[in-house]
Nucleic acid binder design. Structure first.
Length: 564
RNA sequence: UGGCCGGUAGUUCAAGUGGUUAGAACGUCGGACUUUGACUCCGGAUGUUGCAGGUUCGAGUCCUGCCCGGCCAGCCA
């Protein structure tokens, strides 16, 4: 398996964006500079989809010796909050990126308004007294050209005066708007005199009450890019039709230096996942998850609590690359990167999730042996640890069957297996309760097999994980399944919320952990041997989250058997 | 219905200006190894490159037509 993208340097890695950057550089554009930006609106939490954009923008800048700034696109006072400014910065740093600078579109409000006046003076913008409904009606349709507003030919003086009074808060919200004067018959709807400023008597989290007009995205974005010296403005596919307007705005302003260049790419979609803010908010508000940082959420905070390492997210984003086609990546691919990272870094520990008691009949009464166990076979420097072994242990319920089918080579009556880092044991009897369920195993051990090897060279087919009963630490462990049962929730036109998996989490109580795990700090991810990677909860020391399971051949065998 | 952008294994991406049997990853199947049924290693399978024509010695790459998908008619971004 090769998770390293084929080439990570600017010269070898190729996609249409990097090719364009290289071409621009070769043509001497932008004085050889490369500058990108990540422009979130501070109105919600970042999710895995944003991670792709973040990685792309920062990676391009880094590969071409450029810089990438974080810009808050805070032009809509009604939806934005200061708290998100903090949260978003934290998440970006957690992902592993440090913006060259943190800037705000709202810092450019004065400049943007000045430019709007320039446009008015050039006869390229006007104040329209139509309301939103009338404007919409007059915009025409895909096949019908729009009709000019009755206010389209006001004098420059009147427009200047009206716009000034809009800024002063003289007019009601929605009663007027400043529009670009382009072409109401344009084949591109974005060019049919788009709104540049709308009246909002709203409190802005940064500029307070000093503004009564706010620029639209189209008026703010390109100019913000230009002000900052952005060279390559990367955005998602749906802005494709806005590119002509982006260029139009910049072409009609007196800008120093080269105009930034907008390039669109496909946003990230994942199977069994939704990245729509509306859907995620509904999940949170409806109590279907525990909040924005629920480990089932595709938010960066959710993934963090779940135990997804930022390195894996970055490797994933780099691997999937960029395209101009909207597609949906399999979540298994992301999980594979998570496993690859943890396999190399996570310490191995033993934990029994569904305990079954084992009594070693020939174990010396009261004896405790401290065994040496390897911390990480992938990393010798991780060393070893001591694990206590006694005559009463817990093993996994699933590791024993009274009547084992073919290909089940764990413990069964009369069978011998190895306990990891411990001894060979043989099951000589089992105790069942009145319902027939196995409640205890009686076994013997071979003292000669300490450490896990038999001097006579005999082999066992299985190695089981275990925990000494008296030394075990109790904990709750949460197993997570897909948040949505459907691989493409809502794709068939149904409500994605209908596809929410009612069994997306399974809380296991009374799990038995090896004693060392009690001292693990929150947030740390370890491998519970033979089970998967598990993240210690950030706040609750008695709680673990399954990040992702190990690949499980036995599960595949069972699945195949069920199927047929 | 108009415009724009797309269509390459199950999935996501590769295939310098047209040039041998269209590659890789994940998934899947088989094998080796193994004190994790993990990891690692080896190997197999899956493609009418959306369809139909055309240009050419030669087309996934160029041309034409058609089909399918996405986006666009917020004073959201």
């Amino acid at each position: 398996m090769n998770h390293t993208p084929s080439g990570t340097t600017a010269n070898s890695r190729t996609d249409f964006i990097r090719e364009r950057v290289r071409a621009d550089l070769a043509a001497g554009r932008f004085d050889g500079r490369v500058q990108t930006r990540f422009p979130p609106e501070p109105n919600g939490y970042l999710h895995i989809g944003h991670a792709k954009a973040i990685c792309l923008n920062f990676a391009i800048a880094a590969e071409f010796d450029g810089i990438c700034k974080l810009r808050f696109d805070d032009t809509n006072p009604e939806t934005e909050e200061a708290t998100f400014v903090e949260v978003i910065q934290d998440d970006i740093r957690w992902l592993g990126f440090e913006p060259a600078e943190v800037v705000f579109a709202s810092d450019y409000f004065d400049q943007l308004a000045d430019w709007a006046i320039d446009l008015i003076e050039a006869g390229l913008a006007y104040v329209d007294d139509q309301d939103a409904e009338a404007m919409s009606l007059n915009r025409g349709s895909f096949t019908q050209p729009g009709t000019d507003s009755p206010w389209r030919n006001r004098s420059v003086e009147e427009n200047i005066d009206l716009f000034a009074r809009m800024r002063d808060g003289e007019f009601a919200e929605g009663s007027r708007a400043l529009r670009a004067r382009i072409d109401m018959g344009h084949e591109n709807m974005q060019m049919r005199d788009p709104v540049l400023y709308r009246i909002r008597h709203a409190h802005h989290y940064r500029t307070g009450d000093s503004w009564h007009v706010y620029p639209t995205y189209d008026w703010a974005h390109g100019q913000s890019d230009a002000i900052e010296g952005v060279t390559h403005s990367l955005c998602s596919l749906e802005f494709d039709s806005h590119r002509r307007l982006y260029d139009w705005c910049l072409e009609h302003l007196d800008l120093p230096g080269d105009k930034p260049e907008q390039t669109e790419f496909a946003r990230l979609n994942l199977t069994h996942t939704m990245t729509s803010k509306r859907v995620l908010r509904t999940l949170v508000d409806g109590g279907l998850v525990d909040g924005w940082d629920d480990p089932r959420m595709p938010t960066l905070r959710g993934l963090k609590r779940r135990g997804y390492p930022p390195e894996a997210i970055r490797a994933f984003c780099s691997h999937i690359g960029v395209a101009r086609v909207n597609g949906t990546h399999e979540i298994e691919l992301l999980e594979s990167f998570v496993r690859t990272h943890h396999n190399r870094h996570a310490l191995r520990r033993m934990a029994v999730l569904k305990p079954l008691e084992v009594v070693i009949e020939n174990w010396p009464e009261g004896q405790v042996v401290e065994l040496d166990a390897i911390n990480n076979p992938e990393d010798d420097s991780a060393g070893t640890r001591k694990v206590p072994f006694t005559g009463r242990l817990f093993i996994e319920r699933d590791d024993f069957m009274i009547d084992p089918p073919k290909k089940f080579f764990r413990l069964a009556p009369g069978r011998e297996v190895r306990l990891r880092a411990g001894f060979y044991i043989t099951c000589i009897d089992h105790v069942t309760d009145e319902t027939g369920e196995v409640v205890q195993l009686r076994c013997t051990y071979d003292p000669e097999t300490r450490g896990g090897q038999a001097p006579d060279g005999r082999k066992v087919k299985a190695t089981l994980h275990w925990v000494a009963a008296e030394h075990a630490v109790d904990a709750d462990v949460i197993l997570y399944g897909r948040l949505f049962t459907d691989s493409h929730p809502g794709a068939d036109g149904t409500d994605p919320l209908d596809a929410v998996n009612p069994d997306s989490r399974q809380v296991l109580t009374g799990c038995k952990l090896e004693p060392m795990l009690a001292d693990t700090p929150g947030g740390v991810v370890v491998q519970f041997e033979r089970l998967g990677y598990f993240a210690h909860d950030l706040d609750d020391p008695g709680l673990w989250h399954r990040t992702v399971g190990l690949r499980d051949e036995w599960a595949n065998i069972r699945k195949r058997r069920v199927k047929g």
